[in-house]
Design a binder for these strands. Structure first.
Length: 264
DNA sequence: ATGGTGGCTTTGCCA
């Protein structure tokens, strides 16, 4: 069972890249963020033609939007609203084996890491607190759960190109990293990717569009994550970031992240 | 300190 997460930055613009990912990396389930399309216009038929018959999506015009594309049946599909907003940042489903899969698009948080001057940063911190609260109250030991998504935080020093230079940059500030740690503690989440790729190794999943040559500078950040609850930790077989995808023509600024599991 | 690019539309907002 291979599960991918990918901030695709417009699902309609990059349908071909979903087909390419399917062919080259063979994910059974693809979780998307920033689909940027309202539900009436979601390209369901195209996704089915690519080979994903089971599709769940929650989108809005222009911004945000999440989806789960699956070769295996999805049950109990639902969305949750966070911070009192209906802004399409979460969708969940149960996949065969009784595994509850949660796909998140955490707010990016704006430019200034100060909630008094920047509402977006406050929204991000509040969103993380709500995640902590929700999983603390809605998870029992023994539950098989997977949390994926663009969490917009690079927690480890090796998750960014320069720890020192990014300490005050939104996505790597200590307050965000601490709050993400609290989310992680809320269900004893295991960072599946870092179980496979040692924390000492540099690993990124996002490179800004604004760099002239993203490969030369390699100023990346690991913003995209796949976590599992302890009952699934032993089923982790492999993990990779499909960095090649950042070099595809008209790419997303995020690369897909994939974890392979033993059959649940 | 600033601006760099990209997507969708609202030629400004968000990332």
């Amino acid at each position: 069972m291979r599960i991918a997460t990918w901030n695709i930055n417009s699902v309609r613009l990059r349908l071909n890249w979903i087909a390419r990912l399917a062919q080259e990396s063979n994910p059974d389930i693809i979780c998307l963020q920033e689909t940027k399309v309202r539900d009436e216009l979601f390209p369901e038929d195209d996704i089915r033609a690519i080979g994903y018959q089971h599709i769940a999506f929650a989108g809005m015009k222009s911004y945000n939007g999440v989806a789960i594309l699956s070769r295996v049946p999805l049950e109990s599909v639902h969305t949750l609203n966070w911070c009192g907003k209906e802004d399409c940042r979460h969708i969940a489903a149960t996949v065969p084996g009784g595994v509850e899969l949660h796909n998140f698009y955490v707010p990016a948080g704006g430019d200034e890491a100060d909630r008094d001057k920047n509402e977006k940063f406050g929204h991000k911190l509040d969103f993380l607190d709500e995640m902590t609260g929700w999983f603390s109250n809605n998870r029992s030991a023994g539950d098989k759960m997977i949390l994926v998504g663009d969490l917009n935080i690079a927690p480890l020093e090796t998750d960014v190109w320069s720890h020192k230079q990014l300490l005050k940059v939104v996505s790597h500030t200590p307050v965000e990293v601490e709050k993400l740690g609290q989310v992680q503690d809320s269900a004893q989440w295991v960072d599946a990717v870092r179980r496979v790729i040692p924390p000492a190794e540099r690993l990124y999943s996002w490179w800004s569009y604004r760099a002239k040559d993203w490969t030369a500078a390699n100023r990346g950040r690991r913003l995209d994550h796949i976590w599992v609850t302890p009952p699934l930790a032993g089923a982790i077989w492999g993990a990779e970031v499909v960095c090649d995808a950042r070099s595809w023509e008209k790419p997303s600024d995020h690369a897909p992240v994939i974890v392979e599991f033993e059959e649940f």
